[in-house]
Computed example of a mutant assay.
Amino acid sequence: MTNTPIFPQPSGGCQGCRQKGEADMAFSFAFQPIVDVRDQSTFAHEALVRGVQGEGALSVLEQVDDQNRYRFDQLCRVRAISTAAQLGLTGFLSINFLPNAVYRPDMCIRSTLEAARAHAFPLDRLIFEAVEGEHVESNKHLMNILREYREFGFKTAIDDFGAGYSGLNLLADFQPDLIKLDMALIRDIHRDRVRQAIVRGVVGMCAELGVEVIAEGIEHPEERDFLADCGIYLMQGFWFAKPAFEAMAQIPVEAWQPI
């Protein structure tokens, strides 16, 4: 796709889109890189919600309820894009979204399009992934959201694949651009034959479906090397860099060095 921003205009609106909600919630973002070990480059940065002083995500998320869920989801998109643009991010930006906060994807995307236009952020550099731990009552609803987002030119991702709702049934009905393997599958995988077999199976399946795999939660070089040997080249985790508050994290040279 071209790097020139394209900003389609959804028409109309829904009740959720017209709700202004209460005063804007106070929060900011930290950014964690997703690296490509093939050329030691940064593929994307994931925007992770934080308090205004860098407090953990829980300090913000515990304020979200049924009354302000939509407003919070919309603010997350706008602030993630504006902050990334101010920091000069040039790769992909991965934004978590709350599926239960989306009423009609084609109409509730308006604030995202406006933020991208205001900050000259290309739509084809945005990745939307369902937020970790968000319970979705209907896979059909989530699939409809992901399909609509793809039509707008966004990349789509299934987070925490292998846990909760993010399983094989969802993948059978919709093939996103990316899946992110659940950290529970990654931990100490170089010592666990069962997890190794599962991950190899997922990699082979995704290769056949044309879906890229991201391994998150990398904390040890042995995990990095085993996953690379399996054909997973996109990785994220403390081994490469911790999330940097309102900044682009620097990846140390040691992160690439062999054991």
Rank of each mutant, 00 (worst) to 15 (best):
Glu246His: 08
Asp73Lys: 02
Asp73Ala: 04
Glu254Ser: 15
Thr156Asn: 04
Leu89Gln: 12
Asp225Asn: 10
Glu212Met: 10
Ala163Met: 12
Gly54Trp: 05
Thr2Leu: 02
Gly164Ala: 11
Arg79Val: 06
Ser138Lys: 09
Lys180Gly: 05
Gly21Arg: 12
Gly231Pro: 02
Val78Asp: 03
Asn169His: 04
Gly162Met: 07
Pro10Ala: 09
Ala163Cys: 08
Ile251Leu: 07
Val194Ile: 14
Asp192Tyr: 01
Gln15Glu: 15
Gly12Cys: 10
Gly16Leu: 15
Thr83His: 10
Ala172Ile: 07
Asp229Met: 01
Pro243Arg: 13
His45Ala: 00
Thr83Phe: 00
Glu219His: 13
Tyr165Ser: 04
Gln196Trp: 00
Leu170Phe: 07
Glu134Asp: 13
Gly153Lys: 10
His190Gly: 00
Pro258Arg: 13
Gln67Lys: 10
Met248Leu: 15
Leu227Phe: 05
Ala130Val: 14
Pro258Gln: 10
Cys230Lys: 01
Phe174Gln: 10
Ala163Ile: 11
Gln32Val: 05
Phe240Met: 08
Met1Glu: 09
Arg224Met: 05
Gln63Thr: 13
Asp160Ser: 08
Val64Trp: 08
Met183Pro: 05
Phe43Ser: 01
Gly153Trp: 11
Ala157Phe: 02
Asp24Ile: 13
Gly237Glu: 11
Tyr70His: 12
Ile179Asn: 06
Phe128Cys: 06
Ile198Arg: 04
Leu75Lys: 08
Val202Cys: 04
Ile218Val: 14
Gly88Ala: 13
Thr83Pro: 00
Gly133Asn: 06
Gly54Asn: 05
Cys14Leu: 02
Gly51Trp: 09
Phe226Lys: 03
Met143Trp: 01
Val213Met: 02
Met248Pro: 00
Tyr233Trp: 06
Gln63Pro: 01
Ser11Gln: 14
Glu129Ser: 09
Arg200Tyr: 00
Leu146Ser: 04
Ala241Ser: 12
Phe152Leu: 12
Thr42Asn: 02
Pro10Gly: 04
Gly217Gln: 14
Glu246Leu: 13
Glu208Leu: 06
Lys242Phe: 02
Phe27Thr: 12
Met25Val: 13
Asp66Phe: 01
Gly12Ala: 09
Asp65Ala: 03
Ser138Thr: 11
Cys108His: 02
Val253Leu: 15
Ala197Gln: 11
Val211Ser: 02
Val253Gly: 12
Trp256Ser: 13
Cys108Asp: 15
Val78Ala: 10
Ile251Ser: 06
Arg224Phe: 05
Tyr103Asp: 15
Ala26Trp: 01
Val194Ser: 04
Leu93Gly: 04
Phe97Glu: 06
Asp173Trp: 00
Ile259Leu: 15
Ala30Tyr: 07
Ile158Val: 09
Arg147Thr: 06
Gln19His: 14
Leu98Trp: 03
Thr83Leu: 15
Val64Ile: 15
Ala207Val: 01
Gln32Thr: 06
Thr156Met: 07
Glu46Pro: 01
Ser59Asp: 09
Gln40Cys: 07
Glu137Phe: 05
Ala249His: 04
Thr156Cys: 05
Gly153Ile: 12
Ile214Arg: 00
Asp192Trp: 03
Ile81Cys: 08
Phe29Lys: 08
Arg18Ala: 14
His119Met: 06
Glu148Phe: 01
Leu87Ile: 08
Ala118Lys: 12
Val131Asp: 11
Ala163Glu: 12
Gln40Asp: 03
Thr42Cys: 00
Asp66Gly: 08
Ala184Trp: 06
Gly201Val: 10
Ala118His: 06
Ala116Cys: 15
Glu132Thr: 11
Gly21Cys: 12
Arg200Trp: 00
Ile218Pro: 04
Ile251Asp: 08
Asp106Trp: 13
